[in-house]
Simulated scan of single mutants.
Amino acid sequence: MHRRRFLALALGVMVAGGCGDMGGPGAGWARRLTIVAPVVRGRRWDQAAHALAAILTGERMAGAVEVSGAGAQGMAALTAFAAAVGGPFAREGRVFLAGVPMLAGGETADADSVLAASTPLARLAGDWSVLAVSPNSLLRTFEDFVAALRRDPARLVVGGGAGGGSDHVLYGMIGKCLGVDVRLMEYAGYPTESEAVEALHEGRVAALLGSAGSLLPKIATGRLMPLAVSSGERIDGIDAPTLMEREVRLEYADWCGVLGPRAMSPDDRDGAVALCDRIDASPRWQAVCAANGWHRAYLSGDDFRRWLVTETRRTRAVLNELGLLSIPDTNCWGGCVRRH
């Protein structure tokens, strides 16, 4: 998996802490840390949250780490997180896992934005996407896909994750880049990637957008045929051009970012960002990313906040063109499904 920055959207992991030596209590050591991860257990970023917990304790960045499911989804989970009152971060830190569905949820639910409800700390990783079809598809190349989409965007149904999520947003961005009327495009969202793959093989969708890392084994065995990838450079093991190579000026990855409580003090915020710095530099975290095909895309502090402002605007624009801003069920993490 090539490692370089990515320019567009797409889920999230939370973490916090400070600086200091790796040997125990001090600046950069949290006595107790809670990672709030409102995602489906066992999914990609839930796995990342548990990997982070193991690294934080294993490398003595925190005394104890708990991964919490939040008991809610979307902006409801973030709102509850923001409203909770906690002590100093070094004593009892709390961080939150967020990404594209969270941004979309804030817009579709007409709720406070992610920026208003939290303190952005860092973007940790991302996951490139792949556009794939079944091996017996008549769409043999990305050019075939483009021709079919331009000819009849309402007839070409593309499947992927939950409506309003990263796959759906990427499809809207591709259509926009190609000059297609995005409101006419058909998308079918599924709770799990395996269900989306099943829909593809059963002919219920013509193509599939999904995680390049998780779909790589199916591509390697010939169960899926890739047409394009959303990375800036070609991905090892996937014989397909980038969107940029096909003159679609788009580079995109589903991202994993760390948020802190809304009312963090400057000292707590600086300590949390410093801990994120240490996580990104950890060989164990780098190994986790490599093993899962995740792209390390680190951005922290004010840089992350500025990027998040831009991403929020971009997400809102795409959701508006897709006609999703009035659809409340976009406010979910993997539990929504919009079938056609």
Rank of each mutant, 00 (worst) to 15 (best):
T192D: 05
E195R: 07
G20Y: 12
A228V: 06
G165H: 14
C177T: 06
G20C: 06
G164L: 02
A80M: 13
D21P: 04
L275M: 09
G271T: 07
T34P: 01
G105T: 13
A154K: 15
E245N: 12
L227W: 03
A30G: 00
P88K: 00
R150L: 02
A147Q: 13
S282N: 10
R151H: 12
A30E: 11
T310G: 02
L243T: 11
Y252R: 02
V158G: 07
V114C: 15
L139Y: 09
I279M: 10
K218E: 04
R4A: 14
L149R: 10
R151N: 04
A111N: 00
R313W: 03
G23Y: 11
L9S: 04
M225G: 01
R94T: 06
S113L: 04
D110A: 05
V182R: 05
D152H: 12
C336H: 13
W307L: 00
S113N: 03
L149Y: 10
A199C: 06
L324H: 08
G335Q: 15
A220Y: 02
E198H: 04
M185L: 04
S300K: 09
P261Q: 02
P241C: 14
G203T: 08
E245P: 12
H295E: 05
S129E: 13
A291N: 05
A206Y: 02
F81C: 09
V100G: 13
C256W: 12
E193S: 06
R44M: 13
V158C: 05
M1L: 11
I238F: 12
T310P: 00
I279D: 08
A287H: 08
M264N: 10
R151D: 07
A188G: 03
A281P: 10
R339V: 09
V258S: 14
R5H: 10
L259N: 15
M225T: 07
L78M: 15
L259V: 04
G12N: 06
P328V: 04
I235V: 14
V309A: 00
G105P: 14
R339F: 10
V95L: 02
H201Q: 03
L215A: 01
G161K: 08
G17V: 08
P261W: 06
G71A: 03
G222T: 09
V114I: 15
D127L: 12
G260S: 06
R151I: 01
G232L: 11
A206Q: 08
E59T: 03
M75G: 01
L11D: 11
S118P: 15
A162F: 01
S231F: 06
V258L: 12
A37N: 14
M173G: 04
N331F: 02
T310R: 05
D236Y: 13
H340L: 06
T119I: 09
A80I: 13
A84Q: 11
L121I: 14
L170R: 03
E143Y: 12
A111Q: 03
M102H: 15
A80C: 12
A49L: 03
R339Q: 10
G26E: 07
D303W: 00
L250C: 03
L7C: 02
L170A: 04
A54H: 09
R41E: 13
G42C: 13
L200D: 05
M75Y: 05
